[in-house]
Computed example of a mutant assay.
Amino acid sequence: MRTLIAAALLPLPALAQDLPDIAFQTLTLDPAHATITFRVDHLGFSHYTAGFDRFAATLDFGTDRPQDARLSAEIDVASLDLPSPPDGFLAELLGANWFDAATHPVIRFTSDTITPTGGTTATVTGTMQMLGVSSPVTMEVTFNGGYPQAEWEPYARIGFSARGSLSRSAFGMAIGVPPPGSTLGVGDTVSFAIEAEFIGQPKP
C-alpha cells in the first residue's frame, strides 16, 4: 500500500546518538516524501503491485523518551492507485467485494509495541482496522536518519523504511483466494512497503 500506514518505527537504543536533542513531540508525516505500495500474487504468474496516494500519520517521538514512541496512521481507500487499470477495474476493487470504499473509506493503523532488533532496526506491531475488522499487523522497520533542524528548515526531520505482510482474508476480503494447493486466483498474503519522512514542530 502506497501510507498506511508509515511507521513509528525506530530502533530505540540507538536514537539518542543518531538524533541528538530532539525533544519529545508530535511529528507529522511529510506526504511529499512518503509512499505506500503493496504486492499480491496473481495466478502465480506475477506479483501485482499497486498503492495508495492519500494518507496521513502522526508519530509521538523524542530522543529523550524513545520508549514512549507511538504511531497513528490513516489511508484514504478511495485513493487506490493502479498501474494502467483496464476499464472498470478500479471501480471493481473499490466496490463491495474488495475494499468497499463506500462503507469503509479509511484504513487505520495504531502501533502497540516496538521491539528493537538492531542498532537501526525494530519490529513494530500494531492494530490495523480495515473493512470493519481489527487485526494485528507486524512490520520490520529501518531508521534511515534525521536531524533536529537544518539551515533550510527550522524543525526536526526523521525518516524510515518499513516492510511487512498481512492476510487479506483476516479482514474479510477473501474473494478470489486460491483453493489449497492452487495459485489460480489472487493470493491471500499481501506484502507492503512504506517509505516515510516525518517533520516536527517549527522552532520558535
Rank of each mutant, 00 (worst) to 15 (best):
Thr123Phe: 00
Thr125Glu: 00
Thr125Leu: 03
Thr125Asn: 01
Thr125Lys: 01
Thr127Ser: 07
Thr127Val: 07
Met128Glu: 01
Gln129Asp: 10
Met130Lys: 00
Leu131Asp: 02
Leu131Arg: 06
Gly132Met: 02
Val133Met: 14
Ser134Leu: 09
Ser135Lys: 08
Ser135Thr: 02
Thr138Asp: 04
Val141Gly: 10
Val141Glu: 06
Thr142Glu: 11
Phe143His: 04
Phe143Ile: 03
Gly146Val: 08
Gly146Gln: 08
Gln149Leu: 11
Glu151Lys: 15
Glu153Ala: 14
Glu153Thr: 14
Pro154Leu: 15
Ala156Asp: 14
Ala156Ser: 15
Arg157Met: 13
Arg157Tyr: 11
Gly159Asp: 07
Gly159Val: 03
Phe160Pro: 07
Ser161Lys: 07
Ala162Met: 07
Ala162Glu: 05
Ala162Arg: 06
Gly164Lys: 00
Leu166His: 01
Leu166Thr: 04
Leu166Val: 08
Leu166Arg: 01
Ser167Met: 12
Ser169Thr: 10
Ser169Gln: 11
Phe171Ser: 04
Phe171Thr: 02
Met173Arg: 00
Ala174Lys: 08
Ala174Ser: 14
Ile175Met: 09
Val177Glu: 14
Pro179Thr: 10
Pro179Tyr: 04
Pro180His: 11
Pro180Arg: 13
Pro180Glu: 15
Pro180Cys: 10
Gly181Ile: 11
Thr183Val: 15
Thr183Gly: 10
Leu184His: 12
Gly185Val: 00
